[in-house]
């Protein structure tokens, strides 16, 4: 599989154990996506270890210009993964933070930097891991349906995992992935950007919701909860404004969608 320049990496053989770094958004707001991630990995015969000490990767402070505050949070995560197992992250954005930005964050602190660089090598976004390491190959057992894929900017441009997300969906026999205009464009979330520049963020996400709906489906999946909450929150507000009796756009984490489509428990 082709990767954006500089993102190619060598993948390990399928391990017996992995760590799960579930992200703060999944822990608090979308725990089912985390459970489905565990189920998907366990079905591959992999034991999933969830270090209870995890909180957040620190990205919100890092991108907002508070490096000290980000370091304090990131520092806590560095000690959670003592075994040399892969660390699977069900978010392209948080995975990119740990893989590409931890070494920058600790550049001036050599002992911690060594730790950050070692960990960075073991960070895998979930769909990247399922395709490249676990060899995910389960038949689609769901009813025919259409779906749109939203890949976060960090998944696409820092992890190259937009391709693995797309590959997983393409392998689902009864799922038609729709074409959407400007698929590569940001959804306007941008962490604290959505709060700092609400009007610009609203303009961008409104366009994203429109191009998703125009693509002819009512369902969107993504490997990033930040984008999903932004897109679905805007779609739901637009439904409220329009007085729509039912949601015109629904969505879920790609882990939940995959699990359900490939024989996981009915929801």
């Amino acid at each position: 599989m082709e990767h954006p320049h500089g993102l190619s990496r060598i993948y390990p053989v399928k391990p017996a154990d992995v760590y799960l770094f579930a992200t703060c958004l999944i822990d608090q707001f979308a725990p089912e996506a985390g459970m489905d991630t565990i189920r998907l990995l366990e079905r591959e015969g992999i034991t999933v270890h969830f270090p209870e000490g995890q909180t957040c990767c620190g990205q919100p402070a890092y991108t907002s210009g508070y490096p000290e505050e980000a370091r304090a949070v990131a520092r806590l995560q560095l000690d959670l993964f003592p075994q040399p197992w892969p660390v699977v992250v069900p978010s392209g954005s948080c995975a990119a933070m740990m893989r590409h930005h931890y070494p920058k964050l600790f550049a001036d602190d050599p002992p911690v930097l060594a730790k950050a660089e070692e960990l960075a090598q073991r960070i895998f976004e979930l769909t990247e891991f399922l395709v490249q390491v676990a060899g995910f190959a389960h038949p689609d057992s769901g009813e025919p349906c259409t779906v749109a894929l939203h890949t976060s900017c960090h998944a696409r441009r820092e992890m190259g995992s937009h391709e693995t997300s797309a590959a997983l969906l393409a392998n689902l026999e009864h799922v038609a992935v729709v074409e959407q205009a400007r698929i590569e464009e940001c959804c306007g979330f941008g962490g604290t950007f959505a709060i700092r520049h609400p009007d610009i963020s609203e303009a961008i996400v409104t366009d994203k919701v429109a191009s998703l709906k125009d693509s002819g489906t009512r369902r969107v999946v993504s490997a990033d909860c930040g984008c999903l909450f932004n897109i679905l929150g805007r779609a739901a507000r637009l439904d409220e404004i329009a007085g729509s009796p039912a949601p015109t756009l629904e969505g879920e984490h790609i882990a939940s969608f995959l699990w359900r489509r490939t024989g996981g428990a009915e929801q």
């Binding site: 822990d27 608090q28 707001f29």
Partner: peptide, 25 residues
């Protein structure tokens, strides 16, 4: 929820966190 809900519906935490679900399981 401030600027977030000017354009979006509110974010609501899940009844149980992932760490609670893992513990129960």
């Amino acid at each position: 929820q401030g600027a977030w809900t000017r354009s979006r519906t509110p974010l609501v935490p899940a009844p149980k966190r992932l760490r609670d679900l893992i513990k129960e399981r």
